[in-house]
Design a binder for these strands. Structure first.
Length: 272
DNA sequence: AAAGGGTGCAACCGCCGCATA
DNA sequence: CTATGCGGCGGTTGCACCCTT
């Protein structure tokens, strides 16, 4: 498998596929001494491998918590959804799939999914002032929380703030992660309670029904349309048509009333 | 059965950011 | 402030295996 062996400079370091003996030596060493300081691991484990090779072998293959077996349908769906949101940030995507590695997901994407996906990208597009949109009735929809969730998650890499009241987590294991300054590179933002956060914003796993939401975005980067989406977030004081050509879905009661009017100036949006 | 093209995936490459001296 | 080393990441490579003809 993989590249041919022993192509290292001067022949001092082993390259190519790992042998069972090398795997055992690395596993034994890391089990005792831990998986830090890979240069030390490479030197002291008796392996004629570079530090990076040792690290990669451990993280992608030898780690005890690696999940073996085929990608499940549920995992595939999640990969597709996360890729829409995150792009090729494989490590972040892998962070949402326990036991899967970034390399595995990257390979899976390229070999199984890439051809299926035709992602519509809209760069440097300005979306409407949603206050002028035609909002459908809340009660006409069966699963409003899902739609709202999609509405929010379709916006990619929003650096802004969000305040949610009485958000009920569907998954108790999803806890609040946030960074109060700078851009949080965590793969998924979940919010419990209310507060103000500055972050890469991805919100999901919420039951958002019946809650009040106040979101203000100050920066929108690399806007990407969602395949499911027929909505897009508005930018105040800009008239125009929905460039998706879709009608707008509902917004929950109070959403527009609570939508922050304190948007940043046009320059501050800094659309990339 | 054999040849050749396609596919899957482990491993390598090069760049970047961060920590430290 | 600068240089250096290291870890982490996404892109790419290339071999083994599979499939088709």
């Amino acid at each position: 498998m993989g590249r041919g062996p022993n192509r290292g400079k001067g022949g001092k370091l082993n390259r190519g596929a790992w042998t069972a003996l090398e795997d055992k030596m690395l596993t034994d060493y890391v089990t005792v001494h831990g998986d830090r300081r890979w240069s030390t691991v490479a030197r002291e484990a008796g392996l004629h491998r570079c530090a990076k090779s040792c690290r990669l072998r451990w993280l992608n293959y030898l780690r005890p918590d690696i999940k073996r077996g085929n990608i499940t349908k549920e995992e595939e769906d999640l990969i597709i959804r996360l890729h829409k949101l995150l792009g090729n940030r494989w490590s972040l995507i892998a962070g949402r799939l326990p036991g899967r590695t970034d390399n595995e997901i990257k390979n899976y994407w390229h070999s199984h999914l890439a051809k299926k996906q035709k992602v519509r990208k809209f760069d440097n597009k300005i979306v409407n002032n949603q206050k002028k949109m035609n909002i459908e009735k809340y009660s006409e929809l069966e699963k409003p929380s899902d739609l709202l969730r999609n509405d929010i998650t379709m916006s990619r890499f929003l650096n802004g703030s969000i305040s949610l009241d009485h958000a009920r987590l569907e998954d108790e294991s999803s806890k609040l992660e946030h960074s109060k300054s700078g851009i949080d590179r965590s793969p998924m933002m979940t919010v419990e309670g209310s507060g103000q956060f500055k972050m890469d914003l991805l919100v999901e796993d919420f039951d958002l029904s019946g809650i009040n939401i106040d979101i203000s975005f100050t920066r929108l980067c690399d806007y990407e349309a969602s395949l499911i989406g027929s909505t897009c977030r508005g930018r105040p004081n800009e008239a125009g048509e929905d460039f998706f050509g879709h009608s707008w879905h509902w917004l929950p009661e109070g959403f527009l009333d609570n939508w922050s009017s304190e948007f940043a100036s046009r320059e501050d949006w800094n659309i990339m």
